[in-house]
Design a protein around this nucleic acid. Sequence first.
DNA 1: ATGACTCAGGCGCTGAGA
Length: 259
Amino acid sequence: MRIATWNVNSITARLPRLTQWLESAQPDVLCLQELKVSDDAFPQQELRALGYESVVSAQGRWNGVAVLSRVGIEDPALSLPGAPAWEGAVEARAAAATCGGVRVWSLYVPNGREVGHPHYEYKLQWLAALRDAAEKFASAATPFAALGDFNIAPTDRDVHDIAEFEGSTHVTSREREALAALEAAGVSDVYPRPLKYDVPFTYWDYRQLCFPKNRGMRIDLVYGNEAFTTAVSDAYVDREARKGKGASDHAPVVVDLEL
DNA sequence: ATGACTCAGGCGCTGAGA
């Protein structure tokens, strides 16, 4: 089974690239983030034509996540239990389903904006809710994975130049402690192969030639429980999908499993 | 070549992304 995660930065703008990628990469399950679309405008029919059913949590202009599956969808869920609200509303940042026997969560962790900003505290609260909600799945015998845009670089090596991130979000100890707490609940980081260079970055800013210069970050992560990680036969970042016109600023992370 | 930011909402320009 092939499972992938991809922050598409608008499913509407990305639909041509998305359909092309589904046809070439042939994932059985794909977790999407940053749909930036209303429920009405989600391209359900186009995806169904390619053989994928969808679980979608969308909210219009911002956020939005989905799980696409061509191996069935059972027990869909459209929110993270205990998720904190932002400015009075729970945002569309989690969608889940059991697909071909694997419990899959598609996650879009809040950005945090700046250290000390209320959004940074919201990010940490959201991660605490994630840890609590993941605990029972992490310790289960059923394969389980929490995949998505975590907006955290797990180590200094996971950014192109740690000196540039002094005082910024995405690299702080409190964010990394939240990942450590998640791991302590019983999941581990499935570290992918880079197709080029030494670190498997998954995000490169659109500006200032960041992608050609490989000034990236590894912030799209796959956390699996033991039943999941022992089944992993390969994992890689498909940086080819970041090339050219009309690309997202994130690349897909692909995981192959022998179940 | 991988090339100097992009997207939605809405029609000028703002907020967000990380």
